Amino acid sequence: MNKNGPIIIIEDDADDQFLLEQIFKKLNYSNKVIYFSDGEEALGFLNRTELMPFLILSDVNMPKLDGFALRQKIFTDSQLQVKCIPYLFFSTAVSQEMVIEAYSMSAQGFFIKQDSMSELEKTISVIMEYWKRCAAPNNF
């Protein structure tokens, strides 16, 4: 995990992208934020970039390649696995089955997008602070 690397956000809803962009600007983290509107596009980027992302925030329901299918591809790809990129689901859609499926794929979290901007900001702040303090195998 590269704590200074870019944050990858995979979100197909333009309004949600805008809200997240405003929150990241307000919180003023130095990490670049890169947005993708589908999992296929994000996977292509992850496979061809030399960058070591800090973390991935992924919606579940997306066109082309949904969040679960993307997580599975990353989890089973030896080249991507060694990058130790925390994979967090961030979705308005949630059920017990979805959360069980996410954790069965070794996702590092499943967060529900809140309705209010202040609650959404708190969640992003908690996620960022936790992972900024966390050690990963490739930090040594």
Rank of each mutant, 00 (worst) to 15 (best):
E129I: 02
Q108V: 05
D77S: 13
I74D: 00
M128H: 13
Y87G: 04
S91M: 03
S37P: 01
M117E: 11
L55K: 04
E40S: 12
E97T: 08
N139Y: 04
R71E: 03
Q72Y: 10
C84Y: 15
W131K: 06
L51C: 01
L19A: 08
V33I: 12
A42E: 06
E129G: 07
F75P: 00
Y29S: 07
I85Q: 02
F54S: 10
D66I: 03
D13F: 04
L20W: 00
L65H: 11
L55C: 08
I8W: 02
A136S: 14
V60N: 06
I9S: 01
F24A: 10
K122I: 09
I56M: 10
S125L: 14
E41C: 05
E41G: 02
D59W: 04
L46N: 05
Q114F: 12
K25R: 11
D115I: 14
A69C: 08
T92P: 02
G109Q: 05
R48K: 14
M117P: 07
G109H: 04
Y87C: 05
D115N: 15
L55T: 08
V99T: 08
G67N: 01
D16P: 00
L43N: 01
S30Q: 14
N61I: 11
E50W: 04
N4C: 08
M1C: 06
G5R: 00
S118V: 11
M128E: 11
Y103L: 02
N139P: 01
L88R: 05
S125W: 05
T49K: 05
M105L: 15
A107H: 01
E101Q: 15
W131N: 02
M117I: 10
L19E: 05
E129K: 09
Q79T: 12
C134M: 12
D77L: 05
G5Q: 10
L27S: 06
Y130T: 07
N2A: 09
N61T: 08
V126H: 00
S118R: 04
Q79G: 01
K132C: 04
F68L: 07
A14T: 12
N28P: 03
I23R: 03
N61C: 13
L55S: 05
D77F: 06
S106E: 11
P137V: 04
T92Q: 12
S37E: 13
R48G: 03
F90L: 07
A107T: 02
M52I: 10
D15E: 13
L20C: 07
A102D: 00
P137D: 06
I85S: 07
L120G: 11
E101A: 14
M1I: 00
A14N: 10
L70P: 00
